[in-house]
Amino acid sequence: MSKTSKTGEESVISIRNLRKSFGDLHVLQGIDLEVKQGENVAVLGRSGTGKSVLIKIVVGLLKPDSGSVIVLGQDVERLTAKEMDAFRQKVGFSFQSSALYDSMSIRENLEFPLVRNIRNLSRADINKAVEKALDDVGLSQTINQMPSELSGGQRKRIGIARTLILNPEIMLYDEPTSGLDPITSIEINNLINEVRERINATSIIITHDLTCAKTTGDRVAMLLDGKFERIGPFDEVFADPDERVRQFYNYNFIN
């Protein structure tokens, strides 16, 4: 499935002059990014350059050293614990490692956020929501399995299904295709586009897989030396003669 753009004018994620260091390691050194309603932005960059740190700050898992992060009109850093819980229901986060709860079955994994965020749901409603979320990612048959019984691609899909169960407005994907074979990667890319079409989600996709970036992103943002040096449509960014950008392109497309 190819991406279909329904991008609005309203800025849903607004990041200004964001800085984050870990000791002497300065990973983010003044990030600026605006993501519009319904837009998919793929963030590219080398490993260890702070791509995942960026979306962890967006969802409030990490605190920035300075700068502002406004998501859905709320300053993430100033949210109280209660406001943060409500905010996180609107933001889906797909982890690089899938982060499925090992001790729970797939059904329990999907029920976990649902029963804790939406009170007074009947057993029938819960079952219906779980079955629909699994059906949406094409894995209904795994409902009673344990995470350890699934393949890497299936785990990623279940991880995405678990976040979709709360009908988020924003999706953050951390390396959705890492460690997967090319065919499974294509399936995940298609799923990201399907999710976007189905719930009109605004997404940030962290990746160093250029096929993923090209297939799913309306724009790509290239993180170089702690800053977004290039932001724009895929072909425009990779038309740049900058050696660092060329290296990235050539490696992925075997030129």
């Binding site: 962890k56 969802v59 898992l61 819980d85 409500a86 996180r88 229901q89 933001v91 986060f93 982890f95 690089q96 490692s97 982060a99 499925l100 709860y101 090992d102 976990f112 956020p113 804790r116 965020n117 678990r162 976040t163 709360l166």
Partner: peptide, 11 residues
């Protein structure tokens, strides 16, 4: 990252 996953799911 399962603890982070719980946190971002509003739990």
């Amino acid at each position: 990252e399962q603890i982070d996953a719980m946190e971002v799911s509003g739990t």
